[in-house]
């Protein structure tokens, strides 16, 4: 037991990162499951993080209230974002949502209430590893409970063929709005956890670089598999740490793994265990 505690103490940050990244990967997996290449998860995370920090630290709300408002805000922004991008698909949707992410980052950079480019300081460590994994488990349990539900089926048919889905009576517009709202809520949860375990927020924490990482987690895990997304996030968070001895070149391993998966296992980790 002492060894475990020592190990945890040494790698606590990585352990927390794995949990938060897994939640972010699940947020994107929701969109991909409905066939939406909507790349706004980093922005949703930022909204969750800043709203939680502002309400709890600046406005001195209780943590639970701040968390609720932060997650609800990210979900509402997700639902609202679905409206202007309703007719966009594939790469056009991806670019539009990346653009939205840039807007969120630039707004955070220029607002006084977010701390601007200097960042938001002095966030107390109100949450820790158990909270992160409790949230991950809760989100995973919701995924599991919804597996096989009519809504899950509507998401799958929307991904497969949107016109045919409408032809059998599925309101694919509502599916898209609900999906982005859920993605917003999940990534917003990751943002809250990030804010209260990292003491400090800057707009670059939620920039395109993070969105790129989240997409890589899902590609490596298997684009429509929630379990694969979690596995991808875990692997790609651990790898750079395991190759720390490579110093500046350590992130090259991420690129190599990504290329290997695309070439040799296009179905990702999930595809491997389905074989």
């Amino acid at each position: 037991m002492p060894d475990f505690l020592e190990l945890y103490t040494r790698y606590r940050t990585v352990v927390d990162q794995i949990g938060i990244n897994a939640i972010l990967a699940l947020s994107l997996a929701v969109c991909l499951r409905a066939g939406q290449l909507a790349l706004a998860q980093a922005a949703f995370m930022g909204i969750g993080a800043y709203v939680a920090a502002i309400t709890v630290v600046t406005l001195r709300w209780p943590l639970a209230a701040g968390t609720f408002v932060a997650i609800a805000s990210a979900a509402a922004v997700g639902a609202l974002l679905a409206l202007p991008v309703e007719r966009l698909r594939g790469v056009f949707l991806a670019i539009a949502t990346i653009g939205f992410g840039e807007i969120v980052r630039i707004v955070a950079y220029n607002l006084k209430i977010t701390g601007g480019g200097d960042g938001f300081n002095g966030i107390p460590p109100l949450l820790s590893t158990p909270w992160i994994y409790a949230a991950l488990l809760a989100i995973g349990a919701i995924f599991f409970a919804l597996r096989g539900s009519r809504f899950a089926l509507a998401m799958q048919t929307t991904r497969e063929d949107e016109a045919a889905s409408q032809g059998v009576g599925i309101d694919t517009g509502r599916v898209r709005v609900t999906t982005l709202a859920c993605a917003g809520a999940i990534a917003g949860t990751a943002g809250v956890l990030y804010a209260f375990t990292n003491f400090f927020l800057t707009p670059t924490d939620f920039a395109f670089g993070r969105m790129e990482q989240i997409l890589v987690y899902c590609v490596i895990g298997g684009v429509t598999s929630p379990l694969g997304a979690v596995a991808g996030a875990t692997l790609m968070t651990i790898l750079p740490e395991a190759f720390r001895f490579l110093r500046d070149f350590r992130e090259v391993t991420n690129g190599i793994v990504l290329l290997a998966v695309i070439v040799f296992a296009p179905g990702g980790i999930a595809g491997l265990w389905k074989r």
Partner: peptide, 24 residues
């Protein structure tokens, strides 16, 4: 209800899932 000139099943889904979708 309708069918299409070119078959538009949800090909990656199972027969069961296609029928469930039809009954939505």
């Amino acid at each position: 209800a309708r069918t299409y000139q070119n078959v538009r099943l949800f090909g990656a889904l199972t027969i069961r899932e296609n029928l469930r979708a039809g009954a939505m």
